[in-house]
């Protein structure tokens, strides 16, 4: 037994000395063989650094980079002049609203680490659908159709901001989960489908979903429900509910919104309705050039 301990200590000792030896060699490494000099920042890059990276630790990229994937897709990068307005809009409607409702540090603590802007639409010819945005692992949000955003046009703004409002709900969910058990009691599994795009929004409303896409799965349903409310004015939201012809569908949507409100209150300490009001005000500001 004692002998075994000695062997063990010797072994440990040799591992430690080995570690030291390899450390010592590190000092011999010369300067990097790669050219690591940073390229001078353009005015746009500096603006991004000042407004996104410094304050929120979020990077925003817009230059085409094959490493970001989409190899088999036909897409194009945005025009330089469209990048800043798009990012200003996102900051105003998304970051500012959450900051007003959740406090100075809210977005600093929970945020995607990178925005990547694509100029073109992301069109899927097989499904004949357009993908507005994508979130990869909660770290990078890719926003498409940057070159088509018109900041005087409310619908255009909503289409663009929808992505970030939607994807941010996913990121919040990944940090603090929502009550899946209660959610699944409102809309059981059988109501969800991969062929959501074959159904109209109206049909989906009657089944208790805010949009047809909400029918893809629980997580998308939650994110769609929250972002749908955040994108519409109070009056529009009430009109939307009144237009649903199927009372059962309306009841389900209302129960889901109750769950969203509860989640924001209990998990994030945010008054969801207040957040919605801020988002509406900030969207108005964008439409009226005040951003």
């Amino acid at each position: 037994m004692k002998f075994l301990n000695i062997v063990k200590s010797l072994g440990l000792l040799s591992v430690i000395s080995a570690a030291f030896i390899s450390c010592e060699n590190d000092n011999d490494l010369g300067p990097s063989i790669f050219d690591l000099t940073e390229k001078p920042k353009t005015e746009l890059d500096q603006w991004i650094y000042d407004n996104y990276t410094k304050d929120y630790n979020i990077a925003a990229t817009y230059k085409w980079n094959q490493a970001f994937g989409y190899y088999d897709k036909t897409l194009f990068p945005p025009k330089e002049e469209n990048v800043k307005p798009a990012l200003q809009m996102v900051k105003k409607i998304w970051i500012d609203s959450y900051t007003q409702a959740g406090g100075e540090d809210f977005v600093k603590k929970i945020a995607p680490r990178e925005f990547h802007l694509i100029g073109s639409y992301n069109y899927d010819p097989d499904l004949q659908t357009v993908v507005l945005g994508e979130a990869g692992g909660g770290a990078r949000i890719t926003l498409f159709n940057t070159d088509y955003v018109e900041h005087h046009d409310l619908e255009s703004i909503r289409t663009f901001v929808h992505t970030i409002q939607h994807e941010y709900v996913h990121i919040l969910n990944q940090t603090k989960d929502y009550d899946r058990v209660t959610w699944s009691k409102i809309s059981p599994g059988g109501h969800y489908t991969n062929s959501w795009y074959l159904y109209s929004d109206e049909e989906s409303n009657n089944l208790g979903f805010v949009t047809n896409y909400a029918r893809s799965n629980y997580d998308e349903d939650f994110a769609e429900t929250a972002s749908f409310v955040l994108l519409n004015t109070k009056a529009e939201w009430e009109a939307f509910l009144n237009d649903i012809s199927e009372p059962e569908g309306r009841k389900k949507i209302e129960s889901k919104v109750e769950q969203v409100v509860r989640y924001y209150k209990e998990q994030l300490k945010i008054d969801f309705w207040q957040l919605r009001d801020f988002a509406e005000q900030n969207t108005d500001d964008v439409v009226n050039d005040n951003f």
Partner: peptide, 18 residues
């Protein structure tokens, strides 16, 4: 050689104009 921001050459890669 990569044209990293939108320019004339990207018009040939517009998925909505095929």
């Amino acid at each position: 050689l990569v044209f990293t921001t939108r320019n004339k050459i990207h018009e040939l890669s517009d998925p909505m104009n095929s």
